[in-house]
Computed example of a mutant assay.
Amino acid sequence: MTNIKQFYSLILLLSLLGLSCKQITKSVDETFHPNDSLVKKYNKENRVGSEGEYTGTTKTTTTTSTQHYQEKFVVINGDTVKTPELQDKAKELFHDLEQLKQKQTPAGSKEIQKRVNEFLKDMNLAQPGSKNSNTEKPATKVRKGMLSASQLAQSEEKLRQLPQYRDREIVLYESVHFYEDGSIKLALQHPENPKYVDAYQYKDGYWSEPKPVQARNIERRTFPLSKINFADAQKVIQIYNDKAAQVEGAKPTTTAYISIWDNGMRWFPSTISGSRKRYDIQFNNDGTLKRFRQE
């Protein structure tokens, strides 16, 4: 019964009689070889004539989907189609389908499917088994890339504005990682208890809630935020990639991070490996080049 309704719902749409369109999602054989008694019953209940015409009272409706019915034309998926033109093509389609259906052969079924697809494409309707390009678009994975210098500075300012750290010195613990997806991960010494450390992540413009971590050697692995500029990460990446371009077989970097030890900091990556040579590269705290030499 479902297959029969799908078939005749399509025909009624094509005749512009205000009934909703249902795409053909079942097999061609099942769709176009219904039980005769069920067809007659459905025709009687829905007032469908022998030529597929609607024999009841026609009502004009307006929907908010991709089909909008008006008096002299129809807007389908953003394209305006004249009513007489669509009616003629619908009548032609119905006639072709009736002839093909009478063949009762696998080849006829394939030809039916082909004919329906041609009509749907011509009328800018979604074909069976496909998604409507105007309502459903395939998910595309967007690669945001590392934050710009201004965005990095903004993330740093938002960190300073966290309620628990307002009017307090912020002390970084162990490391700060700047990732190619635009996120930042770091850990901070607890604002109330200096023996505790909490982890934070910056993503989509916001800092996460603190998550407690097991910390050790806190005294040797802390560094004040006031002596670091997040925007310098862009300098490090730019300089690193400029030098890597001069080394045969070396690959550029898309990330950078700060390592903290003995109350000092160091930028990474610190080596450039080519196909034949390897180089040591070091940066000053402000992200400028300190040393570049072959190992």
Rank of each mutant, 00 (worst) to 15 (best):
N132C: 13
S133G: 04
S133C: 02
E136Y: 03
E136L: 04
K137R: 12
K137H: 09
K137Y: 03
P138C: 03
P138S: 11
A139L: 11
K141P: 01
V142P: 01
V142Y: 00
V142S: 11
V142E: 14
K144N: 13
G145E: 06
M146L: 12
M146F: 05
M146P: 04
L147Q: 04
L147G: 04
S148T: 15
S150K: 11
Q151G: 02
Q151N: 08
L152Y: 03
A153Y: 00
A153D: 12
Q154C: 02
S155R: 03
S155A: 15
E156T: 00
E157C: 00
E157D: 14
E157K: 14
E157G: 01
K158Y: 04
L159Q: 03
R160W: 02
R160L: 09
L162G: 10
P163S: 14
P163W: 01
Q164H: 05
Y165L: 08
Y165V: 07
Y165H: 09
Y165D: 10
R166C: 04
R166A: 12
R166M: 07
R166T: 08
R166H: 08
D167Y: 00
D167H: 10
D167Q: 13
E169L: 05
E169Y: 02
E169G: 11
I170D: 08
I170Y: 07
V171N: 10
V171I: 14
L172S: 01
L172T: 00
L172R: 00
Y173N: 08
Y173P: 11
Y173E: 11
E174I: 00
V176K: 04
V176F: 02
H177I: 10
F178C: 10
F178W: 06
F178E: 11
Y179C: 09
I184Q: 08
I184V: 06
I184S: 06
K185I: 02
L186F: 01
L186Y: 01
L186R: 02
A187L: 06
A187Q: 14
L188Y: 01
L188A: 03
Q189N: 07
Q189G: 01
H190Y: 02
H190T: 05
P194R: 09
K195Y: 01
K195Q: 15
Y196Q: 15
Y196C: 05
V197M: 11
D198E: 12
D198R: 05
A199R: 11
A199Q: 12
A199W: 00
Q201H: 02
K203E: 10
K203W: 01
D204M: 04
G205Q: 03
Y206G: 06
Y206K: 13
S208P: 04
E209T: 03
P210R: 06
P210L: 03
K211M: 11
P212K: 09
V213Q: 14
V213R: 14
V213I: 15
Q214E: 15
A215T: 06
A215I: 04
A215R: 02
R216N: 15
R216Y: 12
N217K: 13
I218F: 03
I218P: 11
I218M: 09
E219M: 03
R221K: 13
F223S: 10
P224G: 13
L225W: 01
S226T: 10
S226V: 06
K227N: 15
I228G: 07
N229Y: 08
F230V: 03
F230Q: 07
F230Y: 09
A231E: 14
A231K: 12
D232S: 14
D232L: 09
D232W: 11
A233C: 05
Q234T: 13
Q234N: 14
Q234C: 09
Q234K: 15
K235F: 07
K235T: 07
V236E: 04
V236F: 01
V236W: 00
